[in-house]
């Protein structure tokens, strides 16, 4: 059976465009608004959802996603609730690929096998766990693959030569190319450097490749989707949440709609190229 991730890339390709993946942190700024935001993302043309599992110490993330993670934790978000949110999303949206993204510690504390069983039952398609390089495959990657989940790898400008081969050895779903050496949401990279890196990755795998980190504008999203098979946007989306919380800490009910408008502008730019 062809999985949702593969189908989504194939469909986009047959339409002559790249895919648009969007990251939000589960439970940011509240469970209710986050669930409505997920619906708005699909409505606005997001092809794939990356749902962040909030962690107190996200060491590879910049200020925007750190803040999103802390907001969600403060609002009472847990891994248990994230899995429930994923299951409910799957009931409403049977075809949209859903990926859980985060750090290992909350999964380790939850219990690896229980987590994998719940994620599979919830209809999750893949995992991106930032702090599990191939050296730690026995921790989660191997059992996740055995459970039927794609273990999605990040590669970076420093992932070269034999290291690239090692990183992609068990990679599933797609390859997430982190276009800058740095944390999420900082600067964006130049087209030439992305082009060269994508060519290297394509030499090492048949999986689709998407570009992320530092994409903010419709133009950048469109360019990333031409250089690779798609774009992932995260920090720019969660900043919309940050900017729509009042001084008393109350989030605006218009957040899903505002994020929908922004994501729609990205989806249109990608489709137009």
């Amino acid at each position: 059976m062809t999985g949702r991730i593969t189908k989504t890339f194939e469909q986009a390709k047959s339409n002559g465009r790249g895919i648009l993946g969007v990251f939000v942190s589960a439970g940011d700024p509240s469970e209710e608004i986050c669930a409505a935001t997920l619906d708005a993302l699909v409505e606005a043309g997001a092809d794939m959802i990356e749902l962040g599992m909030p962690f107190s110490d996200p060491m590879a993330d910049g200020p925007a996603i750190q803040a999103a993670s802390l907001r969600a934790i403060a609002a009472g978000m847990t891994l248990e609730k994230t899995l429930k949110m994923a299951a409910e999303f799957r009931e409403r949206h049977p075809d949209t690929p859903l990926i859980l993204m985060g750090y290992f510690n909350p999964i380790y504390m939850y219990g690896r096998d229980a987590f994998l069983a719940r994620a599979v039952a919830a209809g999750v398609d893949g995992l991106i766990i930032v702090d599990l390089p191939p050296e730690e495959d026995v921790e989660l990657c191997d059992p996740a693959i055995a459970a039927g989940l794609d273990f999605i790898r990040l590669t970076t400008p420093t992932t070269k030569g034999t290291r690239l081969t090692r990183v992609l050895e068990k990679a599933g779903g797609f390859v997430y190319y982190v276009s800058i050496a740095g944390i999420t949401g900082t600067k964006s990279a130049g087209a030439d450097s992305i082009k060269a890196a994508i060519a290297d990755i394509r030499g090492a795998t048949d999986l689709p490749v998407v570009t992320g980190f530092g994409i903010r504008t419709p133009e950048q999203a469109a360019e990333a989707s031409i250089l690779s098979d798609g774009a992932i946007v995260g920090s720019a989306v969660v900043e919309i949440i940050a900017n729509n919380i009042d001084e008393a800490g109350t989030p605006s009910p218009e957040i899903p709609q505002k994020i929908g408008q922004y994501v729609s502008s990205l989806a249109k730019a990608i489709a137009a190229k």
Binding site: D131, P133, E135, L154, T155, T156, T158, T159, V178
Partner: peptide, 20 residues
């Protein structure tokens, strides 16, 4: 060789840091 002391230790870092 994997940096383990019993179950502890290891190399739980983002891929960007691994070559370093």
């Amino acid at each position: 060789e994997d940096g383990r002391f019993g179950i502890h230790g290891g190399r739980f870092v983002a891929e960007t840091l691994m070559p370093l």
